[in-house]
Design a binder for these strands. Structure first.
Lengths: 127, 127
DNA sequence: CCGTATCCTTAGAGATACTG
DNA sequence: CAGTATCTCTAAGGATACGG
């Protein structure tokens, strides 16, 4: 049995699945892997998320030691989010997710080049 | 832009995240990676899931071409679920999740050997 | 054994307005 | 800029009973 933050798990993978069982957290990590980001930047890049939900998810990730939150005492305020070591260790996992998605679309989807996100275009160029 | 099952995505990873953004699907895949399973077996092994939710999630996975459903015309009925090629390609991803969980628990959790799930005990032995 | 059919509860998430 | 504070709503999931 594993105990993490007062929760019980009987398998290591359950720990991971429990942390990332919502719609947003892995998406946030994906963007932070690219670079440290301000709240505003994340909000723009993950455009479908609301400000409130982003706030909640960032707090959860901070509480679980996956991201750092650094406040700069300026006016207007500046807050920068970055990955902890545990967060950085998610990189291979997310790259697997990316690669799996590429193959899945090849097999079951269709592609048009327009409106592709920035990082996606870069990835396709580097192939 | 990618189109899969009438949905739009601007990045390959969004496709993956969208499919697995619930609490159960990856857990089901994890168990099917070990072996093909009957409905009853999955229900026992993923003990916290309700019968209804398991039914729904299996249907979704079948619709998305990630698992196969094979019905044996017997009485009582027998239905066996297995992974498609797309499903099997999730193996490295899930093993990354497992490994990430191991490290995460080492860093932030505590462990007791009791009540560990079967596959977990095997994995620890083979180390 | 392998599901459906209902009914119900709740957390996640949206919309909008407001503050240090 | 980076959040709170409410208020509302929906859909995922739970509980239970029934059916081929």
């Amino acid at each position: 049995m594993y105990y993490v933050n007062d929760k019980e798990f009987n398998c290591s993978i359950s720990v991971t699945l429990d942390i990332f069982n919502d719609r947003w957290k892995l998406s946030i990590i994906w963007h932070l892997l690219q670079d440290n980001k301000r709240f505003k930047d994340l909000h723009e890049e993950i455009s479908e998320i609301t400000q409130k939900t982003l706030t909640v998810k960032l707090k959860e990730l901070e509480y679980k030691n996956i991201i750092n939150r650094e406040v700069f005492p300026e006016v207007p305020p500046k807050v920068v989010y970055s990955l902890t070591d545990a967060g950085k260790r998610l990189k291979p996992l997310l790259e697997d997710m990316y690669e799996w998605g590429v193959k899945y679309v090849e097999e079951f989807g269709t592609i048009t080049e327009e409106n592709m996100c920035y990082s996606e275009k870069n990835r396709r160029k580097n192939k």
